[in-house]
Amino acid sequence: MSVIIFADQFQGKVKKSALEAVQYGAKIAQQLGVPAIAIAVGEVGAAELSALGQYGASKVLHVADARLNEPEAGATTKLIAEAVAKENASVIVFSHNFAGRSIAPQLSAKLKAGFVAGAIGLPDTTAGFVVKKNVFSGKAFANVSIGTDKKIVSVMPNSFSPVAGEGSAAVEAFAAGLTDADFRIKSLKVETVSGEVPLTEAEIVVSGGRGLKGPEHWGIVEDLAHTLGAATACSRPVADSGWRPHHEHVGQTGFTVRPNLYIAIGISGAIQHLAGVNGSKTIVVINKDPEAPFFKAADYGIVGDAFEVVPKLTEAVKKYKGN
C-alpha cells in the first residue's frame, strides 16, 4: 500500500501548490503507516525532485518525457493509473490547481475511485475516510466520505503552507507505456505572465474594486502589491468593465483565494465577492464608506480615502521591509 502524490512542475520547477500536495499526502501516508511516493512528469532536474524528500516523499517516480512539460491530461491520467497499480496505492493526492482539476476527475472515473475536490483538512480516518472541503464557494464546508477502496483527494491551494524539513527522496525513472495516440491534446503555445505571482498561489493578495474609479488608478494597488511581493486581484465589476483582466477576478464566479493576507481596496464586499476570499487568514479593508459590508468580514479596517491611505501604507510597509 502507498499514497501517490502528483507533483506537477512548471518550467522545471515543482509548483508551490504541488509541494503543498506532497506534504499533505505525506501526512496521510503517516496516518496510514504507508510510504508517500511522488510522481513527476516532464523535464525536471534530479535535484529538484529529490528535494521532495524535504516535504515527506520517500520516493519520486519520474516520467522524463518532454511531451509532458505541460501535462497532457489524458496521457497523464493513464500514466498515473499505471503508477497506482505498480505501487498499489490506496490514496492519490493532487493539488486542486489547474492541472489537478483536469487530471484528478479523469483518474477518478478511470479507477472508479471516489474523489473529493478542494480538501481543506486532513482526512479523518478514525471511521472510514472523511474529508472536509469548501462548498457553496467558500460560504460553507462539507465533510465528505469516500466509500471506495481507492481514494482521490485534491488539496485547495494555500490550505497548508508547505514547510521544508530534512530528507531527500530517491528518484526513479518510471517508464510509462504511452503511445502517440495518448496525446490527443496538442499544445500550440504557452504564455506566462512573467514576474507576477500566480494569484491562487499567492500568500498576499492586494485587490481593488470600483472605489478606485478607473484602470488608470491601479498604480497604487500595484505599488503596494510589489512592495509586499503580492499578487493583484479585483472584484467582478472591475473585470466586467475591462479595467483589469478576467484572470484577476476573485469571487464566487471568479477565483477562490486563501492567502495569509488579503487587502481589499475600494471593494464594498458583496456576498459573492466574500465567498471567494473568506478563507483568507487576515483580511484588511480600506474603504471610504463605513457601512461597507466588507468591514464585517475584516480583521483590520481603515475608513478613508484609498488614494491617500494606500500610498501611505506602501511607505509604512517599506520601512519594515528595510528598503
Binding site: 473529493v116 464546508f141 462539507a142 465533510n143 479593508v285 483590520y300 481603515i302 475608513v303
Partner: peptide
Amino acid sequence: LTSVVSFELPPAKAGVKLI
C-alpha cells in the same frame, strides 16, 4: 463513490479592528 456526511458554516469573525 462519495457521500456528504455533514455540513458546517465557517466560524464568525471576531470583529474588525478599525484604525
